[in-house]
């Protein structure tokens, strides 16, 4: 037998699409009882700055990997934020880490909200339900960065309870801005809640969308889409101007492992951002 047969060959890291790049947690901030905002620094030049809508695979040695949306946009290379809900093995363990700890990052993966393409000069309606605000926030930050390049902006945000509202600082900023309309609601209010109560679709009655053409970006729990899409249909927003960001189980992020399929599409490569027009005939999509 060849001597080489018994010892595995250590490969070149750059050629391994499954190998995480070392990254550093530079800040952690608890947003709700379940959600933590992490700032991540990835020194490797091979990791590109994520574009709005993309996700990364976050690796913890011994625990595993989880696909997490990037929730920020900045021009600062190799620095981005992720919002992590404590809900599975990896996210549970991430919450227990401290600033300065190292984690692994693969990606960024997937398609982007076309904020630098089709959406320029357009009126944009952002519709976020619960955790769906995280990926949308990357697009909102991008758009607000170049506010002059877009038309009217509306942000609709629905949460289950006031305690589950995410990114309170951003919400506060959006509320106070004159160059956008921000409306929020919660499914169940509380003693201190003065705002609207009701599901997210109740916000549509407050809008006048009829006079202008609008594009819409939606992200929320699976149950939300059909109701929101019905509202958009009633307001004649065409399917090709509606973008959705979808969640599926993703293991590899590179279109190999087969878990994230929506019919023939791979969410990790063909998505997570889809034009609704491209999904409308796919029964597994929405």
């Amino acid at each position: 037998m060849d001597p080489q047969i018994d010892s595995p060959v250590i490969g070149h890291p750059s050629s391994d699409i499954y190998l995480p790049h070392p990254a550093l947690i530079t800040s952690m901030c608890s947003l709700t009882a379940l959600d933590m905002l992490f700032e991540i620094h990835v020194p490797s030049p091979e990791v590109h700055t994520p574009s709005p809508g993309q996700f990364v695979e976050v690796s913890l040695p011994g625990i595993g990997e989880a696909p997490i949306s990037v929730c920020s946009f900045s021009n600062h290379p190799h620095q981005f934020q992720i919002l992590v809900r404590r809900i599975g093995n990896v996210t549970q363990a991430l919450h227990q880490l401290q600033i300065g700890k190292s984690i692994g990052i693969r990606g960024p993966f997937g398609t982007t909200f076309p904020v630098d393409r089709e959406l320029r000069k357009q009126n944009i309606l952002f519709i976020a339900g619960g955790l769906g605000l995280a990926p949308l926030r990357s697009a909102i930050q991008y758009v607000l960065h170049r506010r002059w390049d877009y038309g009217k902006l509306i942000i609709l945000y629905g949460s289950r309870t006031p305690d589950e509202q995410l990114f309170l600082e951003d919400l506060h900023d959006w509320k106070s801005r004159k160059d956008l309309t921000y409306l929020e609601t919660v499914d169940r209010g509380g003693p201190n809640w003065k705002g609207r109560v009701g599901v997210i679709t109740t916000l549509f009655s407050l809008l006048n969308l009829e006079d202008d053409p609008w594009s819409a970006i939606i992200c929320g729990p699976p149950v939300m889409y059909s109701f929101v899409l019905r509202e958009l249909r009633q307001r004649q927003i065409p399917n090709e101007l509606i973008y959705v960001s979808l969640e599926r189980r993703m293991k590899c992020g590179v279109g190999m492992c087969g878990h994230c399929q929506i019919n023939g599409l791979y969410v990790c490569q063909d998505g997570p951002v889809f034009r609704y027009k491209d999904l409308i005939h796919l029964q597994e999509a929405l």
Binding site: V9, H12, P13, L19, K101
Partner: peptide, 9 residues
């Protein structure tokens, strides 16, 4: 936190 690829040849 260090990962190293393993390839079998």
């Amino acid at each position: 936190g260090e990962f190293q690829s393993v390839m079998e040849f």
